[in-house]
Amino acid sequence: MKRREFIKTGVSAAAIAVGAGPALAEWAPRRPINAILPYSAGGGTDALARAAAASADGILPVPLVIVNKPGSSGITGATEAAAARPDGNTVMVTSAGSFLLTSMLRDTDVNPFDSFQIIAQIGNLTPAVIVPANSPFQSVQDLVDAANANPGSLRWAHNGRGGFHHVAGQSFLNRNALQAQDVPFKGGGPTRAAVIGEQVDFAFVGIQQAAGFENELRVLALAAPERDPVRDDVPTLPELGFDYVPVSSPIVFFAPNGTDPEVITGMEAALKEITETQQFADLMLERGNVPAFLSGAETEARLRQMQVDTQPVIDALSEQG
């Protein structure tokens, strides 16, 4: 029932938005737009992209189709999207933080800056420090004290080496001169399960992963400059006085190099409208998240900054092999 209402409100909001939006005038796509998503269906990035696609109804004159092309930590789909004909009918939507870090770590043929034009950011995934509910660590300070008392004794989980949670966690440890052994798991769900099952002492995972697990997990801090809009009870690392590197993963739409600038601006405007719909906000909220639009230029600046900030950690990881 609730869903129906969302769709209704979404459609009516979209209708108003279309009437008001002149930006679409120069760009009129005729065929469905395929958005390549380089991860499998059902993951976190997939859920956000599909929320956007569902909300695009009425804003775009053609359907926005999400095409899952998983493989090789997202590089398989990215390679295909980069090689697609730049006619605006094929774009890519991905977790840009992971894409950037993977391309830095593995020196892949495609990367976010040289192979693509950045259209816009629609949302954001932010890592948080979580511990099991029974953990003796009540605060980040407890955790840091324990790590200092016994260097290398703590175990922490993340969802794969070279991913943004891993880099965020390792940067935090490095900046605070801490030593702890990381244990990679495949994906957010298994990482969370490892924390609940007390296989590890703490973990860096997306703050959305904690939704619904309030009795099993404790979120100690958010690794971001500002508090999470949904979980605003969780303090941030800088608030608590700890040094860290802001590594998060913006969900970004990319177009292959050579796409007409008019198409890019048109799509950027359409994505802005999509993120402003009530339906998109509601769908995001169900996943413990909020829309976060950034223009193409702002997104690029943000990714470049992240590249600079994470370079030391990436270098250290590459040396380890």
């Binding site: 059902g42 619904g212 169900e286």
Partner: peptide, 28 residues
């Protein structure tokens, strides 16, 4: 109850729960 998929099909079903706004977890 834990959001751990035991199979590929399970991983996709998690997505379906999310899409329909049903939060997987012990409170489900």
């Amino acid at each position: 109850t834990l959001g751990i998929p035991g199979s590929t099909i399970g991983a996709i079903l998690i997505g379906v729960f999310l899409i329909h706004g049903i939060q997987i977890g012990p409170t489900l």
